[in-house]
Design a protein around this nucleic acid. Structure first.
Lengths: 350, 350
DNA sequence: CAGACTCCCGGAAACGTTTACAGCAATCGA
DNA sequence: TCGATTGCTGTAAACGTTTCCGGGAGTCTG
């Protein structure tokens, strides 16, 4: 018995040929029925039956090759351990899933090399689009972004003329909210524990802090500013250094992980929070309400940014001719127990 | 000018045909050179040059279709926000990346439907293998696992005769470590805040707790046991309920998220930790050293389990004929400030 | 110097889909 | 009743890659 082609794939799993043969129709008819387009009632019945009997499941790879769509969206963030990215991820996952696609998460560790390698790998077309949240932006990024073979949405600041869909927040304004809040409560010696200044958020938050102090007519005391990376341990260490040489009555932190580290350092050093030293974090992550006292934090609405980024990406995938869009979500302050309530009195948490 | 086939793909990107035509060789030769197998020096030179000039990047989908490998590994966990899974993920990502593959993370939310749907979707072959860490196991799971079209490694308990690669820990023994530690420090009214009893870890930890108490000749007081889910908020609420009706001198929690919730509840209720009430968490996540006092926790070595699971999976992908393997990693206790040091005295953290 | 062996090359098939196209039968309108 | 339309169907091409196979040129061996 000679057949031009085997009726099942090499590993024995049924293919559309198997189904077609079993139903006694051509592969074209089988495919049409399986995709719900066309077919006579009789054909539909036979094909459906055959497919069910052999347990046919279409091969996603072959389908992708033909349709030029993989049904996958990539997300690249610096650190999957940072709860702010978890929140972002959840929001993105929700809209990606509702479009019937799957999410592929990359952790870049914030390293330029990883990110540009990732951007280059997009050329392999293993994914229909990318959401990238870089903390550093180099010329290399911009170049790779410019001629990316698949749509990319960037979450974070980007040079003004970059023709890339972009959702951002105003973290300068975010820091200002924190400073205003503390100044309103009478704090003047406000410390700042930041992430690396060569990162985009680090630089923006530094600028925001300086501007906010200036606006209130407060001279910046350099001994009140410390820099680490965006992690808990660094935040704790940086705060210890800061406390060793100065005496703040409030501390603003560039994200919640740093802030939890700062809280730890403050309490261990015997300071009362918020009575002696008030504390405001940033990102408003789950962590903020898990610690004691619960932390005030500036929300940059990671959930909303993620949701919007995912929607922008899906829209662009559907219509690549869209003009580049830029959307900004406004920060807001969430006051909890680590900073004075608006009336100026420190709330007691016990 | 008639060509049997276009030299570039529909969207204008170069294909192996483009490169071959430009180099003046056949696509077979071009492909061989690009894969580093065979080719005369002259051919190699020409093909490499042509590929560089047109910026050729092979299409991952087409390659997958031919090679029957996608180069992707899926990981399904219940909750990407739980730091224990973050640790696991990091370990898995490391070995997956070192094999040149990519990791695809799914969050199942612990819902059976999601997990079986995922298992079924594997039939699409969009991924070379799966690492699954389910918290509930149903007949449906076992069925789907049995005839999974791609290799699966399960992290967690599995019925003894399930022919699936499996890395597990002994969480009964883990709970026992915690209980032994607390009993050795003289605590007798030991509370237990668990996750749902219909989950595999929940059931195991419950059994472990009862067995450990029995071994020490302590009668179980049901008012000292509470159940919620495996999250922070539930842990806090469950502990509040527990404190409202009983007076423990120690609390064991089924994971660190619960334990942080418990810590919060204890401190807010005015209990000193560990002097009045000692606390031991489980999973030994980053969280344990981020709170104050830092938390003792039973490590189930998620990192190691993840690493091993990934290795098992890669081995099985390379050789599907391997017999099913089962590997157990032993728990160990990490004592921090929330429980008495081994000499029985509570350490002061301030 | 003939045969065997090695190396490199190109044609063509294969992976498993979807879909353009053409053929055919049945129905419709005039 | 006949041509046009409609609805299904099957053949075959296409997606972009890898690889089997046969042929040709060159080298080695006896």
């Amino acid at each position: 018995m000679s057949r031009k082609r085997l009726q099942a794939s090499a590993d024995g799993r049924p293919t559309v040929h198997t189904v077609a043969a079993r139903a006694g129709v051509s592969i074209a008819s089988a495919s049409r029925v399986l995709n719900g387009v066309g077919g006579s009632p009789e054909t539909i019945r036979k094909v459906r039956a055959a497919a069910a009997e052999v347990g046919y499941v279409p091969n996603a790879v072959a389908r992708s090759l033909q349709s030029k769509r993989t049904g996958m969206i990539a997300l690249a963030v610096e650190d999957i351990g940072n709860p702010v990215y978890v929140a972002m991820m959840r929001a993105i996952e929700a809209v990606v899933a509702s479009s019937g696609r799957q999410l592929l998460v990359h952790a870049t560790g914030g390293r330029i090399a990883n990110e540009t390698a990732l951007l280059r790998r997009l050329a392999h077309r293993y994914v229909d689009g990318l959401i990238l949240s870089p903390i550093r932006i180099t010329e290399e990024h911009l170049g790779a972004l410019a001629d990316s073979p698949v749509p990319v949405v960037v979450i974070g600041q980007l040079p003004a003329d970059t023709p890339v869909d972009n959702v951002r927040t105003d973290s300068r304004a975010g820091v200002a909210l924190a400073v205003d809040h503390l100044v309103a409560a009478g704090r003047r010696r406000i410390g700042f524990v930041n992430g690396p200044l060569d990162t985009v958020p680090g630089a923006a938050r530094d600028a925001g802090f300086r501007a906010a102090l200036a606006r209130h007519g407060i001279d910046l005391d350099d001994r009140l500013v410390e820099v680490g990376d965006f992690q808990y341990a660094a935040g704790r260490a940086a705060t210890q250094r800061l406390l060793a040489r100065s005496r703040p009555d409030a501390v603003v932190c560039a994200n919640d992980l740093i802030a939890v580290g700062a809280l730890h350092a403050l309490l261990v050093a015997g300071h009362r929070v918020p009575d002696d030293v008030a504390l405001v974090g940033m990102d408003d992550t789950e962590l903020a309400s898990m610690v004691l006292p619960s932390m005030s934090s500036v929300s940059l609405d990671a959930t909303e940014r993620g949701r919007i980024a995912a929607q922008l990406l899906l829209e662009r995938i559907n219509d690549p001719s869209l003009p580049p869009r830029r959307i900004t979500v406004a920060p807001h302050l969430v006051v909890r127990d680590s900073s004075p309530t608006p009336d100026g009195r420190a709330k007691q948490w016990a």
